[in-house]
């Protein structure tokens, strides 16, 4: 399978990465090189094979649903690019 430039733009938008027109051309070539490389998998007979969901045979452990950590908002916000009144701040989302 290979991608056209419209697909590159669509995927970039899905991935929330801005791309310039010039980058689209490069990315198309690079993405197609990787996709050509992984196309080899099409020749494997996977009839009746379960897709792997866990690499080690284990059941996920359960724990009590209780608060075990927290109560330090200043540390939570310490790396925020913009914080106001103890909250993360973002551009207006809902009009």
């Amino acid at each position: 399978m290979s991608v056209d430039q419209a697909t590159v733009r669509r995927v970039a938008h899905l991935a929330r990465i801005a791309v310039t027109e010039e980058e689209v051309v490069h990315l198309q070539g690079e993405l197609n090189a990787i996709l050509a490389f992984v196309d080899e998998l099409a020749e494997v007979d996977v009839t009746g094979v379960e897709p792997m969901t866990s690499v080690t045979p284990m059941t996920l452990p359960l724990r009590a649903d209780v608060v075990t950590d927290g109560f330090y908002p200043e540390r939570v916000l310490a790396n925020a690019p913009v914080a106001e009144d103890g909250f993360f701040a973002v551009p207006k989302v809902v009009e």
Binding site: H13, A15, R16, I17, A18, V19, N79, A80, P81, V82, F88, V90, P91, K92, V93
Partner: peptide, 21 residues
């Protein structure tokens, strides 16, 4: 939003896209 660098945009989607680019 929560950590890392931010590049402003005219709305939140553009902010995400410019930040990540």
């Amino acid at each position: 939003v929560r950590y890392g660098e931010r590049v402003p945009g005219r709305d939140i989607i553009e902010m995400y896209e410019k930040t990540r680019a």
